[in-house]
């Protein structure tokens, strides 16, 4: 027992130290890996911001129109105010004529109440107008973004939404994620597709599909006909009937790949 203690205590201690340090190293290494990922993410956000900046400047000329429409709304309640003040004055005169101090006070209080309500309402209206205006500006910005995206898409020759950003980031993981969603989209089209009699193997139709962030289809158009009008129509209606596709929650990926994309349709891969 003593022999064992004398000859084995140090080795046991060292062995445990080695394993503990390895475990610590692994833990730290994993933590470092996670941090690296966190560093990468902001870079992606930055790049989207860079894209958005020129759009805002483009959106600004469009923004001014809303204020004129909202300003009258905001001014109206202020026009009500003088009328109220006049009312008040007239009533105060009436009160003085009657010389009933108590009544006067009561009326005054009521007036004040009315005034407060009016003021609150004007404030609310002003806030609403402000919100309205902000929404309209945002809308304009979004429209500009989509327009720009469309132009970028037109520039790029590949079939599925590509732009400079995707080349820049060259993110394999994002590609894989997009691919799974595209597979889901194809599967849903298969489910909603009714095969026309004229469909033949080897046909291929390219559709341009536009989605909104919720995944709803807003527009379908024919980009490249298969040569058979019935088949083209059936593919188009399959997309329309599907109505809604699953899209990634990540808005950056959605904007880059799903806002509008080209979808290729071949009868043979739908036969399964």
């Amino acid at each position: 027992m003593l022999y064992a203690l004398r000859h084995y205590s140090l080795p046991v201690l060292l062995a445990f130290a080695i394993h503990a340090s390895l475990a610590l190293f692994l833990w730290q290494g994993m933590a470092a890996g996670v941090e690296e990922e966190r560093i990468i993410k902001p870079r992606i956000i930055n790049s989207t911001l860079l894209v958005l900046e020129p759009q805002q400047s483009k959106a600004r000329p469009k923004a001014p129109p809303p204020p004129p429409t909202s300003k009258p709304e905001a001014v109206k309640p202020e026009k009500v105010d003088p009328r109220l003040l006049e009312d008040q004055r007239r009533q105060r005169e009436d009160a003085r004529k009657k010389t009933v101090a108590l009544e006067n006070a009561k009326i005054k209080k009521a007036q004040e109440e009315k005034e407060r309500v009016a003021k609150e309402e004007s404030q609310r209206q002003r806030a609403e107008a402000e919100r309205d205006r902000a929404a309209r500006i945002k809308d304009a910005a979004e429209r500009a973004a989509t327009e720009r995206q469309a132009r970028l898409d037109a520039l790029s020759s590949s079939s599925v939404a590509t732009d400079e950003q995707s080349q820049e980031s060259a993110d394999g993981e994002e590609m894989a994620l997009a691919q799974t969603y595209f597979q889901g989209i194809r599967a849903k089209m298969v489910a909603n597709w009714s095969r026309p009699a004229s469909a033949r193997n080897g046909m291929q139709v390219t559709l341009r599909v536009e989605l909104v962030p919720s995944g709803e289809v807003v527009a379908v158009s024919l980009v490249d006909s298969s040569g058979d009008a019935a088949f083209d129509r059936s593919a188009e209606s399959a997309v329309r009937r599907a109505g809604r596709f699953d899209v990634p929650d990540d808005s950056a990926i959605f904007e880059r790949r799903f806002r509008r994309f080209n979808l290729q349709f071949k009868p043979e891969d739908l036969l399964r």
Partner: peptide
């Protein structure tokens, strides 16, 4: 495997010293 690793390291150190 963890036990085997720990014990083999104990043996390695013990043999080394011995």
């Amino acid at each position: 495997l963890l036990i085997a690793s720990v014990v083999s390291w104990v043996m390695i150190f013990q043999r080394w010293f011995a």
